[in-house]
Design a protein around this nucleic acid. Structure first.
Lengths: 340, 340
DNA sequence: TTTCTTTACGCAAGCGCTTGCGTAACTGCC
DNA sequence: GGCAGTTACGCAAGCGCTTGCGTAAAGAAA
């Protein structure tokens, strides 16, 4: 079974390759009946074009890169799902890269895109990332980069995020309303813009209710569950007065629950917990977890749509729109006040 | 900033493009000092090769495709993580595709690979998939396809799976030992080889303990949580005698828990539950869930290693090795017998 | 009939890199 | 000093597709 290519089709039909190529692209320059013949033969011979050749010729890869920190988190899983949905609908392919929260890896990954591998990049910056020149460099090469969820501050481009500040504020207020007077916050990577927003929301709500913000109530975690468990445990041991926990990252939920459990701090009787989380199992946790659910799937769809729209109109720069999709607070047992 | 390419480098160094190309590939045909000069200039000019051109010329894309049903499931998320780890280490890129359990989409996706987009494919077949000619067709084109987790029966190729039969048997036996005498099984897509294995393991364990297999104790679920909830609820309502549940798919856990809860069937007092699951939150569910944890990350690493090794030795066909990694039963409160 | 469009297609030059082969220059050998 | 054997590099033909431009044929306008 020899590989069949454009030339083969052209020969068989006594046409030139350019005509066949245009016919397959449904070009206006080709007659309707010719198109039919080409299509028919292509189908019959099961012709599949070589994407590298087309990419090289057209300098368009029909491929986008998705660069994310991790894929464990159900947020990113759902976001990727959203991205894939629109990409597939538009005939785009998705290259996926994990930075594992490492700035160095992020740089290496983005650098490779300068060769033209992808038409555009969708990313959520790593927790470590502090500088942004690698992103700017890519933009300078004409490769559009858009952010979702975790955006880099210095970069002007489209982004879709959620209302982190308000959500966090809302969540904290909820804890206050549930009677918490000593609320701690569990974070990762405080330099992350979204984390800063969440912390600010937390601060605002505290201020609002006359509680004061304590730096030692903010714990910066890592990505190692063991370490996090210990850090949270230390926090709770050092501060027996803590009666509320705002968990800004889904990843930390398990560690937080376990630390509370192991220390005999009952949820919600002793400590009430709210967590940013997109996990479906929040509802069946022990106790069911009050969450801030982010529109992960929609975020993925939105950012992909933005990028692909920009890619359609050759260099209609994807602008600098900042879409904000709302998160929702879902109250469950972990913040219940009618303690049984 | 004009694009810099091989020719540019060559001109600048007064070399031919072939020499520069070979120098960058660290070919034995090029002198050490020349290599140095080339490397130095490449670095200085921030040269990034055009991957489409190399792929076209060398008919190697350094890219593999990962085709999976979903990404919601933490199993697949972790498996992708494993794949990515070894791919990145070998300089390979990963294209990701979701079939959403649709055979038709799976066919369309695989078909596109016939053009040479990828050097190899790692897949877990969709739940719908019954025929396999689309996979065979790809193999016929010389594109290696390897399976992980969900393999297609008719295809001869490398695969890495887990010991589904034994695990399932073990889990069922565990339920029996915990006193269950009416154990139901929740499945999806019974034609899936792994599901068949799991059902057989269940049957074996039942037979072993003298319990009889009842077809009406096997519920085939879908991917819609609502539907599944209802189906499970119906099962439990129709069969109040059911005192054990073997959940073969992580996705169904939440629905199962909710159905039990809403019907007032206490876990583990009334119904004991074991689930195939890789979710970290299993430990903090209400009650903590006894799980069969699959080596997802390792599976991803293993299958990727197998494929990449085959890709190195140009057409040293990746053989038909069938690696089986063991799953482990983790007993937790959902099968506890000392009911409080 | 002549001229101007329009329509439908072919020519050929790439796109940027790879690679088989050819060949100078240099080495070591008898 | 002649010869085979390296070593280091260049030539040029692709890889398979895209696309700007040119043009014959056919129809419309004058």
């Amino acid at each position: 079974m020899e590989k069949i290519n454009l030339k083969r089709l052209a020969d068989e039909l006594h046409l030139s390759t350019s005509t066949v190529s245009r016919a397959l692209q449904d070009s206006y320059q080709i007659g309707a009946d010719t198109k039919q013949r080409v299509l028919a033969l292509a189908q019959k011979l099961n012709y599949v074009p070589n994407p590298h050749a087309s990419s090289l010729g057209s300098r368009k890869s029909n491929t986008i890169a998705v660069v994310i920190p991790e894929v464990f988190d159900s947020y990113f899983a759902q976001a990727v799902n959203g991205i894939e949905t629109v990409a597939q609908a538009h005939g785009y392919h998705i290259l996926i890269y994990l930075t594992h929260e490492s700035e160095q890896q992020e740089r290496a990954i983005l650098r490779a895109f300068q060769g033209g591998r992808v038409d555009g990049v969708l990313m959520s910056v790593s927790a470590e990332t502090t500088s942004t020149e690698h992103i700017a460099a890519l933009q300078a090469q004409g490769v559009p980069v858009a952010f979702f969820d975790r955006a880099a501050d210095g970069i002007e481009t489209a982004r879709v995020t959620t209302n982190d500040l308000e959500s966090s504020c809302l969540a904290t207020r909820h804890l206050v309303e549930c009677g918490c007077s000593h609320i701690a916050l569990l974070s990762i990577a405080r330099q992350l813009s979204i984390e800063r927003q969440r912390i600010r929301g937390y601060q605002n709500a505290l201020a609002e209710s006359g509680q004061l913000f304590r730096e030692d109530y903010v714990v910066e975690c890592t990505h190692d569950p063991e370490e996090n468990y210990l850090a949270i445990r230390q926090l709770l041991e050092a501060h027996p007065e803590i009666d509320g926990l705002l968990v800004t990252v889904e990843l930390l939920t398990v560690s937080a629950y376990q630390a509370c459990h192991d220390l005999g701090r009952r949820i919600p009787a002793d400590v009430k917990v709210v967590s940013f989380s997109n996990s479906r199992s929040a509802a069946i946790l022990n106790p069911a977890l009050t969450t801030i659910r982010q529109p992960a799937f929609e975020t993925g769809k939105a950012i992909a749509t933005l990028l692909l729209k920009a890619l359609k109109n050759r260099h209609k720069n994807l602008g600098t729109d900042s879409v904000v999709l709302p998160s929702t607070l879902i109250v469950r047992a972990s913040t219940a006040t009618d303690i049984k």
